[in-house]
Amino acid sequence: MITVRELHKYYGAQHLFKGINLEVQKGEVVVLIGPSGSGKSTFLRCINGLEYFQKGEIIVDGIELHSINRLTPGKKDMEAIRNVRLKAGMVFQQFNLFPHMRVLENIIEAPVRVLGLEKNTAVENALSLLKRINLEMKVHSYPGELSGGEQQRVAIARALAMKPEAMLFDEPTSSLDPEMVGEVLSVIKGLVNEGLTTLIATHEMGFAREVADRVVIFDKGDVIETGPPDEIFANPKTERAKTFLSRILS
């Protein structure tokens, strides 16, 4: 479903990714962990075309993203990036709901304007999504009137409204108050159980252990270990992984 091959990424002189490889199967749930600044966000953003990379390739459901060295990508690149975004929805740490639109408008905006859906159909879909995340009563609220947890649930619904093949979550609960983390995670769990291909960057280790088919540990831009959660958490092989896990699990 998602293939990353020999991914190299520079931020100016900083050589962050030095050839990352990752293969995600359809329906697989992969959890990315690692210390802050290790490159989890950048990795997800590369897959979503929000960051360009300088070497290697990323293939999402058959659509290839190529490395871009130029400042501005060509027309073909832009087309590929847009198609990849339609395959893989993204949820951000900061929610990024559109503050000038109501909840309903936030959700139907892209289906109507990008996919060309009938407005009625889009609204119907949106309402059933809102029902699923238990927020039907907030249809006409503005994002500013919602709690953080509610906003993030709406953001998930907004991404799902595009009917993506896969979902990318970048620390979806990191900017939430602790009491709201649960409600968001349970929505994600629901999706995972339905078999949606999912990549999640998170610091919630309990959650990772529960939902992950595979855990990938990042450190300083390197993938230092990858495997099923039971193995990784019980028997980390490398020193770097051990240090990280002992710090985070203590």
Binding site: L50, R82, R85, G89, F98, E109, L115, A159
Partner: peptide
């Protein structure tokens, strides 16, 4: 905020549409 453009783009909007609507 930068995240607004990124959220719009990640929903498949073109840059023009994102500018106009978001």
């Amino acid at each position: 905020p930068k995240g607004q453009m990124e959220a719009a783009l990640s929903l498949g909007m073109t840059q023009n549409l994102a500018l106009r609507r978001v």
